[in-house]
Design a protein around this nucleic acid. Sequence first.
DNA 1: TGTTAGCACTCAAGATAAAAGAGTGCTAAT
DNA 2: ATTAGCACTCTTTTATCTTGAGTGCTAACA
Lengths: 341, 341
Amino acid sequence: MLTERQKQILQIIIEDYIATAEPVGSRTIARKHGLGLSPATIRNEMSDLELLGYLEQPHTSAGRVPSAQAYRFYVDSLVEPGTLTDKDRALIDGWYQERKRDIDDIFRSTAKILSRMTKNVSMVLANKHSAANFKYLKFLPLDTGHAILCIVTDDGEMDNCVVNIPLGMRAEELDYLAGRISRMLAGRSMLAISEEDLDRAYLNVTKDKVLLSPLNSAIKKMAAESAEQKVFLGGAKQLLSQPEFRDVERVKDLLGILEEERVVKDLLAAGTDSGMCITIGSENKFSGIKDCSMVQATYRLNGEIVGTMAVLGPTRMEYGKVMAVMNYLHKYLEVILKNQD
Amino acid sequence: MLTERQKQILQIIIEDYIATAEPVGSRTIARKHGLGLSPATIRNEMSDLELLGYLEQPHTSAGRVPSAQAYRFYVDSLVEPGTLTDKDRALIDGWYQERKRDIDDIFRSTAKILSRMTKNVSMVLANKHSAANFKYLKFLPLDTGHAILCIVTDDGEMDNCVVNIPLGMRAEELDYLAGRISRMLAGRSMLAISEEDLDRAYLNVTKDKVLLSPLNSAIKKMAAESAEQKVFLGGAKQLLSQPEFRDVERVKDLLGILEEERVVKDLLAAGTDSGMCITIGSENKFSGIKDCSMVQATYRLNGEIVGTMAVLGPTRMEYGKVMAVMNYLHKYLEVILKNQD
DNA sequence: TGTTAGCACTCAAGATAAAAGAGTGCTAAT
DNA sequence: ATTAGCACTCTTTTATCTTGAGTGCTAACA
């Protein structure tokens, strides 16, 4: 267990290092912060803290650097979320207004804001209406031989695709077919409509199998699409200003991860429990970001998870600031999403 | 005018520099390529070429490096498009198969392939069905107070959005309204439907203005969406392997451009004339890429431009290879897009 | 017993100098 | 016109020295 003074010193070291990216020496601590202790005393404490695993020395004659363990302790016990200045808020509000046409724009803006405010990479994952239920389907005639199949879900979303219509089938027949099938599938979760269900519903209405297969694949495609997640990224550029990414090799590792959408989804899927979730250094899943930290928050609408946002950067991250920004965006998103609906 | 031998030497220098990224010396040329000339002779020629503006010397005792002018000459007169190996083709085919669900996936794949094959940044711009004509609109009932407005265009695409329905309006009325308006607007280009057109069509049917405004904004939104261009990027990672991007500052400039979708669109919009278009160094529009080259090709469907693909990298680019890859992808895309339709 | 001053020690980073290496330009010979 | 030879230039590399920040330890002090 750390003494109060050790905690104080540890906090000073961490925050100084976060601010400067330079190893922190006993002198600096004594000078900058009015602890009323001499460098020698502080040195002793630092020595203890190193023994306890909270500090590391790049080499004998350098100051100390916080270990992953230190950051973990910091985010768990030391850091307070911080609060945004009015200027920051105004900035965020402005960016959100800038371009706001549809829901995608909002996520895009969120990613952009997140990266700009935190000077790190941001990732925003949007779950597309995952729990939608089938409401009805309808055919919109296009020309002889083609129609647009529309499937409407009870949350007011819809998907569509073009299907081939057997020659000679009339609009009324299609309407009849659509109506009957709709009634049989109504209320079912899109994800839960199996091939057999559809077969049964279809064959119940007509013995003519000709439309069954395209209908089936259309529903499958739509179900898949509705389960689809979209990823928005931002701020790879900001990252390059961070001293830890002066070395191109490290940037490469990171970009390698960010460019694989699959990997990003995987990364964000991990921490979808509630609240804010911080993973530090080797706690991370992928080796390319073993010396990075990630702060992640999920946002919900009516209790249901609609997405996740995260900031990824060096372990030397302004955790307080990041959390503050995320909190703010979080509230923002909830309001916007609620109104959108 | 350059002599045949000067051209030969210039070509050797350019291709050697493209391959090695090191200034090329007279020795190297004499040794590697059986020109039957001594280094001294080659030196004289190089001296002339420098005077003519084709070569540059980083410093007195270094070899020579091609100038922008040299690259220009190279792509205009010297380079032959090159041809892909069977292995490359197999690779490309494989990547295209990998994930091919909808048209977006195909563009995404194209960007990915382009960047992987050329080890440079790739950009793919997809114009969304720009010349679509209005076919009809239809309301799909949702619940009391809401319906989904569907607008179908004659190329079989459709868009939809939710609109508020005045309380008490019945489905039959909506159908009637939709039918009448549809007939009046049918065949019009989506982009050309002005507010007044809609007003006129609408007021012709009913004096009750209550649905006019949402209808209007819906059509506007859809028209805007259908004119929208999508950008797909790939391969920022590859770029970091290039020696010219060892320096993080240069990467920053480039990423700054790539992260602004607006800028990318602007960049790609410039060269939408036919065929392959190469811009070298300071020929480029934005200062962030003044020492980069861009190879760009537009692809068409039935004579109409559906998009553009481009490769962006250091001026020291494998132009021949890039052109070969693009040619291949170009053909690929045309076939796929034709079948998609 | 906790704190502090003093001092020797360590190690990275910066500065300076010398050596190596690659390539050129010029001249004179072929 | 071509080429061999050679002096010259300038970067790159290597080695050596110096500087400075910071530690760890010991002994004195409250």
